[in-house]
């Protein structure tokens, strides 16, 4: 039995107060490239104050169909990004995952993949989900490789769903089933 579900090899997942996340969100959302990897909506450059209000409103709503955590490094506890489950359908055991590292100097070093593995452990061991999905934009090959490494399988493409810089781009859908995750885990442990 794993009693340390929130710790990986490089990062841990943590719950943070609105005032902590608000400053980071406001800063990260000024990085237009980061927003374009993460979201179909354009960045609105919301202030730190507005982010705090938004997160506090979310807090009042209580448990919903979303679970979000901050990602902190184990080496010096730096807050480098967030990861969350959304569209959580407990009766079907199905959810989507989204991850973003706002601190660019941690990209391409395995921090995201580590956080994803921790989140999947939580999703399959604590929430007892049967599968986890994600959507990644076709112009983000770094993320696609990272998800493949973790064990996500390609499930199709939503054609030409985004328009950016005058071009149309696909969504890639990827998914991992509980049994695929367990097989992968037993191979590494």
């Amino acid at each position: 039995m794993n009693n340390d579900l929130l710790h990986g090899e490089l990062v841990r997942l943590a719950a943070e107060n609105p005032e902590v996340m608000a400053g980071h969100f406001s800063r990260w959302n000024q990085d237009a490239g980061w927003v374009r990897f993460l979201d179909t909506e354009p960045s609105r450059l919301l202030s730190e104050k507005k982010w705090k209000e938004w997160l506090e409103k979310d807090l009042e709503k209580g448990p919903s169909d979303q679970i979000f955590f901050a990602i902190r490094t184990l080496e010096d506890d730096t807050l480098i990004g967030f990861i969350g489950l959304f569209d959580l359908f407990m009766q079907h055991g199905d959810a989507f995952v989204a991850i973003a590292l706002g601190e660019r100097k941690y990209w391409g070093k395995g921090y995201g993949a580590d956080a994803m593995r921790v989140m999947l452990g939580y999703a399959f061991s604590e929430l007892n989900l049967r599968r986890v999905s994600l959507i990644v934009f076709e112009y983000n090959p770094r993320a696609i490789r990272s998800y493949e490494k973790v064990g996500f399988v390609h499930e199709g493409r939503i054609r030409e769903v985004l328009q950016r810089d005058g071009k149309r781009w696909d969504f890639l859908y990827m998914g991992i089933l509980r049994e695929e995750w367990l097989a992968k885990e037993s191979m590494t442990s």
């Binding site: 079907h92 999905s133 998914g175």
Partner: peptide, 25 residues
């Protein structure tokens, strides 16, 4: 056009089913 199959995304009556995404341009 059928574009995506989210495998076994629906659990009903003890059986699993794919969620199928279709698109028209």
């Amino acid at each position: 056009v059928e574009e995506v199959r989210r495998r076994k995304a629906i659990l009903r009556d003890g059986q699993t089913w794919d969620s199928i995404h279709l698109g028209l341009l």
